[in-house]
Design a protein around this nucleic acid. Structure first.
Length: 476
RNA sequence: GGAGAGGUGUCCGAGUGGUUUAAGGAGCUGGUCUUGAAAACCAGUGUAUGCUUUUGCAUACCCAGGGUUCGAAUCCCUGCCUCUCCGCCA
């Protein structure tokens, strides 16, 4: 979420970022609502203060025994603030008569009569307080309606992009900044993974479709084993060599978690949702991880926090209908190892570079050639201020596959999920910065391994680092 | 799924309609004392928003959202969560 104070004080900075993203949301309505909201709040607070004081006075008066008796005697009368004195006296006499004991109460009668003016004053105060209450209620209704609209509009605003992000219309504007490794050459025609997988009997498309429909597949035998080996390898690498904490989160989360990460409300149609229990299926571990420390203030010295999670990811892929329908490149369910960091604001761009290297290390150790893309303003994600993609080369389908996208979200998600930290003991809490990146997405790494390590006879050489996990050096 | 109990500050914990401006204790920070430490004593110790921006001031927050009331931590309704017992289950 963008800080409303930034929009208030420096709207042009936000406008510029929006226009770079080709987001045509206007800030005018937001600014106007914010102004109106604050004006209402001021009115409400003043009225509440007044009511508080009046009520306090009433409380003091009601602690007076005589006044309290008088109040209870007259509690059935309508409009007590406007009762004529004569009638009040009559009611007092009625009451005393009902009590049947006349003499000892005579004194009390005089006391009551002497306090009639005070009583009336008190009732007038009550009436005034009641009227203030009504006024407050009206204003509160207005304020909460505006506040709800305002919050909702803010939730639809994408993060600011950093100045270093290249300007561009769409994915064609992304900039290739680096390459690593050599694309493999073959003395035969390299096959795509769907052919290899089928002929090796390790990917079963037909039965996947039978079970769950298009974009589902079944991994079997060494195919399933390969994916598991990759997961173990990646987790071990990030835990043992990069200092991440292995973390197993829920795969279904509450709505507020998906709001916290930035997936809701804007991208509801990308997510699976269980209507009965109102759970959202995670499209990436980023969603639960963002919310690990929601509504917390982390103690000084706690940051940075590094988490790595292997989860299944569920995506409706409605927007990509008809795209990448062959093979296992784009499914509704896939596994991913995700890197996530909570860091202090000053360090977040450096941390992004480190995270990139952590993710790249996976590809390097697997011997998969890759290139790095700096995402442009037209293609960068909603929550991100700066993103790099890692694409590995897949020799069979002859394309670069996105296997990771590493992003610095600044305080955008932390603000939504209310994740704060205290820089020093006693210092004011601040929003943390969050970063996320795949390290890496599994099916696409499986594709790259199968296609790049294939041999003329259709068998696959297992990359060196995976052999301890695979228990074999060839998939045949 | 059934029955019951509960949710108060950093923590423990009191509080059944109004000096609660949330008691008391612990912790933490600072100070006094001490050669030093401990103990004791004194003081301070939340978050958010708005207004002033030097000091401040105001409002809200006792799980969340509604309601009753002049006034709600307290009473009523709904939801969420935790615990105990039973049932079921991996």
């Amino acid at each position: 979420m963008i800080d409303i104070r930034l929009i208030r004080q420096n709207p042009d900075v936000v406008r510029e970022s929006l226009s770079k993203r080709h987001d045509d949301t206007s800030l005018d309505a937001i600014i106007k609502m914010d102004e109106e909201h604050r004006k209402l709040l001021q009115g409400i607070e003043a009225l509440r203060g007044e009511r508080k004081n009046v009520s306090k006075l009433i409380g003091k008066l009601e602690r007076d025994h005589i006044l309290a008796t008088l109040t209870s005697i007259l509690s059935d009368c309508e409009d007590p603030a406007r009762l004529p004195t004569v009638q009040i006296i009559k009611e007092i006499d009625n009451f005393l008569e009902q009590c049947n004991i006349k003499e000892p109460l005579k004194q009390e009668r005089d006391q009551m009569i002497s306090k009639i003016d005070e009583y009336i004053e008190k009732e007038i105060r009550k009436e005034r307080s009641r009227r203030i209450g009504e006024e407050i209620k009206i204003l509160e209704e207005q304020a909460s309606e505006i506040s709800e609209q305002l919050t909702n509009m803010l939730l639809w605003l994408p993060n600011l992009v950093q100045d270093s992000v290249p300007i561009g219309e769409d994915e064609s504007g992304n900039v290739v900044t680096r390459h690593w490794g050599e694309q493999p050459t073959f003395d035969f025609d390299p096959k795509p993974h769907w052919e290899l997988g089928e002929s090796l009997g390790i990917i079963d498309f037909e039965r996947g479709v039978k079970l769950s429909g298009s974009r589902f597949y079944v991994l079997k035998g060494l195919g399933a084993r390969l994916q598991r080996a990759l997961i173990d390898f990646m987790l071990d690498l990030h835990v043992n060599e990069h200092g991440y904490l292995e973390t197993y989160p829920p795969f279904m989360v509450r709505e507020e978690c998906a709001i916290g990460s930035g997936n809701l409300p804007k991208f509801a149609d990308h997510l699976y949702h269980d209507a009965e229990e109102d759970f959202w299926f995670v499209p990436t571990a980023e969603v639960p991880l963002t919310n690990l420390y929601r509504d917390e203030i982390l103690d000084p010295g706690t940051l940075p926090l590094y988490h790595v999670s292997h989860t299944a990811c569920f995506r409706r892929e409605k927007m990509s209908a008809g795209k990448d329908v062959r093979g296992i490149k784009r499914g509704h369910q896939f596994d991913k190892v995700e890197l996530y960091k909570f860091v202090e604001p000053e360090t977040s761009n450096d941390e992004l570079a480190i995270m990139m290297d952590n993710a790249e290390t996976v590809a390097r150790k697997l011997g998969l050639p890759y290139r790095i893309l700096e995402l442009c303003t037209g293609d960068i994600g909603f929550a991100s201020s700066k993103s790099y993609d890692i694409e590995v080369w897949a020799a069979g389908c002859d394309e670069w596959l996105e296997v990771s996208s590493c992003s610095n979200c600044l305080d955008f998600q932390a603000r939504r999920a209310n994740v704060r930290y205290r820089p020093e003991p006693g210092a004011k809490p601040q929003f943390a910065h969050t970063l996320n990146g795949s390290g890496l997405a599994l099916p696409r790494v499986v594709i790259a391994v199968l296609e790049n390590y294939q041999q003329a006879d259709g068998t696959i050489v297992v990359p060196e680092v995976l052999r301890p996990y695979m228990g074999t050096d060839i998939i045949s």
